[in-house]
Design a protein around this nucleic acid. Structure first.
Lengths: 261, 261
DNA sequence: GGAGGATTACCATTGAGCGGGAATCGAAGG
DNA sequence: CCTTCGATTCCCGCTCAATGGTAATCCTCC
């Protein structure tokens, strides 16, 4: 749908370009950018110049390109993500203060967990979650909580796909997962020992919005060898309810159970 | 530089559209978006549909449009803003815990202060700073600190412009401001009583990068009637040095003084 | 000084973007 | 039920901005 031979719009190419940057590749030359995106050389240079003009990209002294401050600003200003984050942050700080390990807030986006916020730069424990990072739903405690409280139709479509097995403990069988999700709804939290990284476990609880639909998952990552991980649950639950209430939630837990498939 | 009658590229129009959203107008109908941006009706609809396809915008049940999660993700992933924020957050939490009023981190961007992070949802005090929000350099303590440690050439060009007077205490005279900036460099902090909002004062200190250039301003907003605002300075300074060190700064204060005009 | 890469300059081709206009949908009100 | 009035979608011919090859230029680094 564009003048391009490959048939993609400028917006599509724009997304391709910006997507080429992540925390492992936060800046690169225009030529490399062209290679990573697969766009024709000349086109890449032209497009990058347009983006530099609007400050969506920025050029650093060396000549390399990185995501511009403007891009961050536009993505944050008036975004729902930011307001959710702001409602949650004070509660997350409390959790962080008590649990002493990294605390994260994740939402369901495009069949993955997207981490909105993360507190605790504690390096002593393996934690691969990053702000604006993504992880698969079925292999994280946050993801399982989000999935467990999603509409049944969505769960069905998700479970119908082939699921990657990351470690020995990753559940991939649909019916087994369904049972597990039911348990998560009943207990009110998900605890996953080493689903992606064997050394650490995640514990997650749901955050609800005014419509009683799940909005996010609050979780902590603790060392796997910890004596009693479930002891973390009450703190998490209390904080999650606080966040929910800050979002306008007035419902009760039974309201959430109604949503089980 | 596009097929458009007005001569703007798609990227330019994209920015126009996204800029139409802010915290006061976080969602609107496509028609209203067209009005706000001044774009032709048909064009707005076509462009919005492209953006919806890429999930840079999202449509809510009512039909209104808002900034998409994808946009936030792309703006955050691999952005310098995010890494600065992450380095600063733990220190900001400490400040917040001690000072008990809102703590902000701002950078210099396009001749304004752009607030990167803000802690403390304390409603008892008037504070107009918002995350991803902007305020003029000469009317905020953060802005004055950023300006004071900027290259002399930049200060000159900035002070050459006409400056808006927000309250009685806002400095707008160039030579007066220059004197004030020198004082800020000497004392190491800026204290501004009610420069934009009369009821509150801001206190800000500089954060430096490895090259000894200023990178950000750390500040707190306190009630104006507070007995001794300067008492807040030591905490701020210590934290700012902590952030600077986390960014790779190894320099000494004299290094910063050398930069005075 | 020259090999290899990154970047810029040039330019003929063409279809994606453009935007006016009309039709359709939908809610509010009489 | 009918009528506004606004939002949204459909239609369609025009045209120039975007495209992407090739070639020249600018860098480093060895």
């Amino acid at each position: 749908m564009a003048n391009s031979a490959s048939g993609e719009s400028i917006i599509g190419r724009f997304v391709k370009i910006v997507s080429a940057f992540d925390d492992r590749h936060s800046s690169m030359s225009v030529a490399e950018l062209g290679r990573r995106t697969g766009l024709p050389v000349t086109t890449t240079y032209r497009l990058v110049n347009d983006l530099l003009q609007e400050r969506l990209l920025e050029r650093e002294p060396g000549g390399d390109i990185h995501i511009g401050t403007r891009m961050w600003e536009l993505g944050s200003r008036g975004s729902k993500t930011l307001s959710l984050r702001e409602a949650a942050l004070p509660f997350m700080e409390d959790v962080q203060a008590v649990v002493q390990h990294s605390t994260t807030l994740g939402i369901l986006d495009s069949d993955e967990v997207l981490y909105i916020e993360r507190l605790g730069s504690d390096k002593t424990i393996v934690d691969i979650t990053k702000v604006a990072g993504r992880l698969p739903l079925h292999a994280t405690s946050s993801g399982l909580v989000l999935l467990a409280h999603s509409p049944a139709a969505y769960q069905d479509s998700f479970l119908a796909r082939p699921l990657t097995k990351f470690t020995e403990t990753t559940l991939t069988d649909p019916s087994e997962l369904r049972r597990h999700l039911a348990g998560i709804r009943q207990r009110g939290f998900a605890a996953m020992p080493g689903v992606i990284v064997p050394e650490s476990s995640g514990i997650a609880v749901p955050v609800f919005g005014p419509d009683n639909a799940i909005r996010a998952a609050l979780s902590v990552v603790v060392p796997r060898n910890e004596e009693n991980p479930a002891a973390r649950v009450p703190v998490l639950m209390a904080s999650a309810r606080g966040i929910s209430r800050a979002l306008g939630w007035r419902g009760e837990l039974k309201g959430t159970l109604r949503q089980s498939h």
